[in-house]
Write a protein that binds this DNA or RNA. Structure first.
Length: 199
DNA sequence: AACAGAGCCAACCGCCGAGGT
DNA sequence: AACCTCGGCGGTTGGCTCTGT
């Protein structure tokens, strides 16, 4: 560990926390022009004060054009459960079988929806069959948990910059974009911006 | 109308393995 | 052969939003 303390001056420059739209644009733009790879160098070359890891994660989980978010379909849910039964928490492996889905999303989905349902099921049937079996059964009947599709109404990838346009009450948006009700940035917006910026 | 609790999601952290020097 | 760097993975956490009281 502790590979040298590093210059604290450099550390101070590393940004953390939610990505801003500007950062996203920079990253998208850079990758569009130079491609992915060598994330640490990429982060520096693009002028982002982020770690390579952070850039990679942001790109893979959110910015990639082919990434699909929300609306986990019953089929996908079924597949997730089947693959999880087969491989366990090998999220990246599972994600490979779900085009457009990221390991992070699947992982979150599993933890929040399915695992919760397992617990509830376990509680309901004090000792009975194992939860895994329950899932399997549900899966095979393709009737998954009652919360089977809570995401039907999932609003499209509202931009993470807390545009809050969805929730006017949350008035703590970032200054740049907060004042418009229309400031609802979708990935499409970002990509079209990127295209406009071209380079 | 205000407050509290629960749920959800994005991002970070630490570890491990692969590749390069 | 050993060391170092980078990328990838899984687990965990923090913050925001929604729902119920």
């Amino acid at each position: 560990m502790d590979k040298k303390p590093c210059n604290s001056s450099q550390d101070a420059e590393v940004r953390k926390g939610p990505w801003t739209m500007e950062e996203d644009l920079i990253l998208i733009n850079y990758i569009a022009n130079h491609g992915e790879g060598v994330w640490n160098s990429l982060a520096k070359a693009a002028g982002l004060k982020r770690t390579g890891k952070s850039c990679r994660l942001r790109w893979l989980n959110y910015l990639r054009p082919d990434v699909r978010r929300g609306n986990i379909t019953p089929e996908e849910q079924l597949l997730i459960m089947e693959l999880h039964a087969k491989w366990g928490n090998r999220w990246s492996k599972i994600a490979k079988h779900l085009p457009g889905r990221t390991d992070n999303e699947i992982k979150n989905y599993w933890r929040t929806r399915i695992q919760k349902h397992i617990r509830q099921t376990d509680q309901n049937m004090n000792h009975g069959q194992s939860s895994e079996m329950m899932i399997d059964q549900q899966a095979s009947t393709s009737h998954v948990s009652s919360s089977a599709d809570p995401m039907e109404t999932y609003s499209p990838p509202s931009y993470q910059v807390k545009m809050e346009s969805d929730h006017p009450s949350a008035g703590t948006a970032l200054p740049v974009l907060a004042d418009s009700n229309d400031s609802y940035w979708s990935m499409e917006d970002l990509w079209s911006m990127q295209l406009l910026n071209g380079d």
